[in-house]
Each structure stands twice: as C-alpha cells, then as structure tokens.
Simulated scan of single mutants.
Amino acid sequence: MSGKTVNSAILLLVIGNALALISDVFIKLLEGDSAVFQYAFMRCLITLALLLPFWRQIDTGHFFEGGVLHAIRGHVHLVGIVCMVVALVSLPLATANAVFYVAPILVMILSAVFFGERLTRWSLLAVFGGFAGILVILRPVDISWAALAALGSAAALAINAVLVRKLPARQSTVHKLFLNYLMITPVCLLLMLWEGAPWSNAVLLSAVGSSVFILGYNVCVLLAYRQVDANQITSAEYTGLIWAVLIGWWWFAEVPDLWFFTGSLMIVVPLLLIGWQQRRQPKTSSHEVADTYYHGAKAE
C-alpha cells in the first residue's frame, strides 16, 4: 500500500481510521473518575518520545518560530484532549465520534468569518444539516456535560485546523506536532500535580495505546495524501463513523438507535456532497497530519 494510486490511498485511510478508533477505545476503557490531567501529561511525554526518531525533520535553527501561535494552538489542543476523554468515557463510542464530525463544519464557519472564504450552497447545506444532525443525535432532553465535552473537542479541532494556516509554511508536520506537545507539557504537569490523583497504570496504558495507534493513523494519512489529491479520497475519512458503530457494538455492546443514524446522515451526507463537487473540479490541496483525531478536521 504505497498510496500512489487512488484505491491504495483510500484503503490507507480506511485502515487509518480504524487505528484511530482503536486509539479511542483505549481512552474509553478508562474509568469515569480516572485522572484526566494525568492522562494528558502522559500523552504529551509519550508523543514527544514517539516523535524523537524524526528529529531531522525539525528545523532546529528556527525551532521556536511562530512560538506564540504554537502556544495558543497547543493549549487549545489541551482543552480538546480533556474534552475528548470526558466525552469518550461517558458517551457511546459512535455518538461521541458523530459529534466529532461537526469539526469540519465549524472549520467552514471559522474560515468564512476570519478569512473571508465564501460559503457555497453545499457548504451552507453542510452547516445547517450538520447542526441539525447534532441536535437529532444528542436531543436537547439528553444534553449532558459529556455531550458538551464532545462539542468542545470538535470546536478545539476546528480552531486548530484554522490556526494552522498562520504557522510558518516551512515547518514540517513533525516540527509543528513536537512544539504543540512541548509547549503544553509544563501546564499538563502542573494540572496533574493540582489534580493530586494517585499513579494509575491504567491511565499509563491508555496513554501509550492511544498515542501509538494515533501515530499509526498519522502515518496512514501522510502516505494517503502524499501523492493523491485530497478531493479524490477525503470521503474515505468518514468510514471512521462506520468503525465507531462496529467497534462500539462489538466491544461495548452499544447499539445505535434511529436517532443516531438519522443525525449521522444529516452530518456526513452534505460533507460527502462537497467532496463529490470538489472531485468534479480537481485541484491539488495539502493535508496536514492529525493528532487526536480529531477525524474530520485533521489538523495536528
């Protein structure tokens, strides 16, 4: 699977999204009262260690270029990590992932507000359909802190996806990811100490598992988008929702209801239509590697 053909690139994205869902499973296996900040700190250390072998891709001569923006993105990402843990621990796997898919819709809105990008009729359909879909899935009577956390995670993903445009163009993805985690590690340490939770091997296992599998997802994304236009294969990203349903049903005995399927279609179908429209007007576009899944808004 070199990713050099459309079919192989699509297969890589399907596999990659499955790996990302396994990453989510490691988080979901945590207890409801697990130390969230301990998890965030361990996630930072493990990710930095996993990135060290790729040190040559980091421009050490301009290591802290764009540091302020990196710091902002990093701390937004930290909020997203915390929200993601709360959502995955409390919500059904498929429900949490469906809400995460609101991220690309928020990217459209933020891009229109801050960059003056024009929303097409398809984009507007995605925006209204997406938010209506979220209401159908969550239903106002069922709104909880976990549901709000899922929305918060999607918002963090969207903000970081928009802010990445302002980062120095010459910085590699590894460079951006490394700075992202490096800058939030001290804050994570302080929050962990403030949390005061006893050491947990379960949290460590969750952090290791989720970090390794999300790295596998990152590799698949890089290979898939390296030589194939994004508009030809992006729709394969939405197989993540299928994996969420299957893994949630098999592993956690979670059976999605009609509300979930209806709302998910309202979110995903307009995004697929946008991809179809873009495919009719091919253009080369770059794709940044993701950390956390972020699935939908793909930004590190």
Rank of each mutant, 00 (worst) to 15 (best):
T234Y: 14
L258N: 03
T284A: 11
Q232S: 12
G263E: 07
Q232L: 13
Q281N: 13
L222W: 13
I267C: 07
A155D: 02
S172C: 11
N218H: 10
V268L: 15
Q277G: 07
L190P: 02
W199Q: 05
K176A: 09
I274C: 11
F178I: 04
S285Y: 12
Y181V: 02
K283N: 08
L190Q: 01
S206D: 04
W251H: 09
I184N: 01
S211Y: 07
G209K: 01
S210P: 04
W250R: 06
F252A: 12
S235R: 10
L215D: 01
T239V: 12
R170D: 04
W194R: 12
W249D: 02
F261R: 03
K166D: 06
L258Y: 05
F260V: 00
Y225T: 05
N218A: 14
L204T: 06
C220T: 04
Q171W: 11
T239N: 09
Y217E: 04
Q232I: 00
G240V: 00
K166Q: 12
L204Q: 03
V203Q: 13
R170T: 01
F260Q: 01
V219H: 12
N180C: 09
L177V: 04
P168C: 11
R280Q: 14
S172I: 06
Q278F: 07
P256E: 01
R170K: 14
L273I: 11
L223N: 09
V162W: 15
E254M: 02
K283V: 06
M192Y: 09
T284C: 06
I214M: 10
V203S: 09
V245E: 01
Q227H: 14
Q232R: 13
Q232E: 09
Y238W: 08
W251C: 05
S172W: 03
Q277A: 12
V245N: 02
Y181T: 00
L182D: 04
I184F: 05
Q227R: 13
R279C: 07
